[in-house]
Amino acid sequence: MKQKNEKRLPSLAARIPAAFCAFLLTACLLAAAFSLIGLQAMTSVDLHTGVALSEDSMNLQMKRIREGIQNLAERYGFDAENAAGAVSRESVEDFDREVVRWWTGFAGTGRLDSEPVYDTAPAEEALRKDEKFISGLEEMMVKSTVEEISGGIRETVRKSAVLFRDLLLETGARLAGTRINLPQAAELLQKIPLLAGVGCLVLSGCIALLMSRRILTAGQYLGGAMAAAGLLTILILLLLSALNLRGMIAEASQALEAQYAGLSGILRWEMIGGAALMLAAGCGLMLLARKEYPKA
């Protein structure tokens, strides 16, 4: 008789709150998935370094730097090839790494360090060795002109690596810092996926408790919530792609568009993979839950 009781379906009084918990669990799973990806997009040094140093981005960046140096050469009359040769791809890659560490550091810790500065010493040396250019200058003007050009090269490299208005970031950080504790806010931001994860565990526990000894039946609700979160993730990705962010970015900056293409490509596949995993795990749980009761 006891065994028969255990095999009975849960009552409506248990199933209604369990369904509500499953609804909240779906929301928690979505929050966990999107906050995890959002956090990765904001703070992952490796991800952004990989994107910034990709072949396409680097080629575009080096092209922009060469164009900038060419413009300076037309203005000051030095040998552009010679100066551009002193701005090596390796040194630009190192600078890109520092820039990524700088702004992801702010997103991760809430502390804005001073912006990295590109070292133009090799370019200055190349300019000083440019005899034709130096001989055309008055002796007392050599130092100041070389420094002026080196400042221009530094700015060209900086603009090719920092694709947003850094002044806005600095002003925004300063203004926000007067109202809120930025390091504390950043720390809280880092905890959002964890909090959502804890919420998922608590809600799963509630569903299991509501289903009492019919533990497999809880799988029906847990599986349903997971599958729903997977479906909704795909739907949200479709809605986000309808925003045409890439087109808007391409209109504003070709260099940023190249980086965005790389970044969104990685994150999109992570999200699709996660959604497929949630969908598959959810369906598996639901199918497993069917086996708890013998067929009527």
Partner: peptide, 16 residues
Amino acid sequence: IWLTPVLLSVPFILGL
């Protein structure tokens, strides 16, 4: 069997 995830998705789909 697919009704549970579909029903759970409906409020979100409507809201979105």
